[in-house]
Design a protein around this nucleic acid. Structure first.
Length: 264
DNA sequence: AATTCACTCAACCGCTCAGGT
DNA sequence: CACCTGAGCGGTTGAGTGAAT
């Protein structure tokens, strides 16, 4: 197992990357593609460990990295996704094109986390399954007056990334004029009652696009009877939630969609 | 102007997971 | 099934920087 190769190897550069190192890394990846991080430094002529190269590329050098401040919509999305997923930064980042898990993690820890902490009277337990109650400042649902209800709302749904084994694309109602194309999908895991995965993808005129995994959002809460999802349910659900002729599908809609309190 | 403090974020570290043998 | 390896993830650190004193 790879155990601390960076710290165990002497004669390796550490700390901030130089422009020359960046150039070497970019040049190598442009020529040979990503992957094989362990051997990459030697081949690229870098005195860095593979881990460091990977991190540098993924968090800083990748051409599709979005630079600049987190927008309001992105902030709201981060908050809601964190409410659902907890500190699953990579999953959250996967829903924010151009943003990295490290960036979102830093943003949360330095900005949103502090705000949240300051506004949350109940101290959240430490660890990966941190429970959060999102402040109304961000447009999220107010905590219920009932402590039990609040606790239920604050429960972080633990997800696990699952590889999709199939994809079904089916038509939905005609989308609002400014939203195109729109599609939904259900991905069914093969075998013995494994969870169904679904997601929604859309893009609008501004080029924004989002993609949400639905499996854990649709997981029954405690006390509820677990029913396997099927395509018909998914269709009904999409029809009922937000996709009708008069609606505008945008970040707000998905924010609504992500809010567990809004679920029947 | 100098010093201290607070904040940001790139980078590192330790660990887990998935895939191959 | 056990082991090994590479890749990825989340927590933490520390250098750099700007604001406050």
């Amino acid at each position: 197992m790879e155990r601390s190769p960076c710290s165990s190897m002497e004669d390796l550069n550490k700390g901030a990357w130089t422009a020359f190192e960046d150039k070497l890394l970019i040049s190598y990846i442009q020529d040979h593609g990503e992957g094989n991080w362990r051997n990459l430094p030697k081949r690229a002529g870098l005195k860095r460990c593979g881990k460091s190269c990977r991190l540098r590329w993924l968090n800083y050098l990748r051409p599709d990295i979005k630079r600049g401040n987190i927008s309001h919509d992105e902030k709201e999305l981060i908050i809601r996704l964190h409410n659902l997923l907890g500190n699953r930064w990579s999953l959250i980042a996967g829903r924010l094109p151009g943003r990295t898990d490290n960036e979102i993690k830093n943003y949360w820890n330095t900005t949103l986390g502090k705000k949240d902490k300051a506004q949350t009277s109940v101290e959240a337990p430490p660890g990966k399954s941190t429970k959060k109650i999102i402040s109304a400042e961000f447009g999220a649902t107010e905590p219920s007056s009932s402590s039990q209800a609040a606790e239920a709302k604050a429960e972080v749904i633990r997800t696990r990334a699952t590889r999709c084994s199939s994809r079904v694309v089916f038509p939905l109602r005609p989308p609002a004029s400014q939203v195109t194309p729109l599609q939904g999908r259900i991905d069914q895991e093969m075998g013995d009652g494994a969870p169904v995965l679904g997601s929604l993808m859309y893009s609008d005129d501004s080029g924004s696009h989002l993609n949400f995994e639905l499996n854990d959002l649709l997981k029954p809460r405690d006390g509820e009877i677990e029913e396997p999802l099927d395509e018909a349910m998914f269709k009904d659900w999409t029809a009922d939630r937000c996709l009708n002729d008069n609606s505008t599908v945008g970040l707000e809609s998905f924010a609504l969609f992500l809010d567990p309190d809004e679920w029947p």
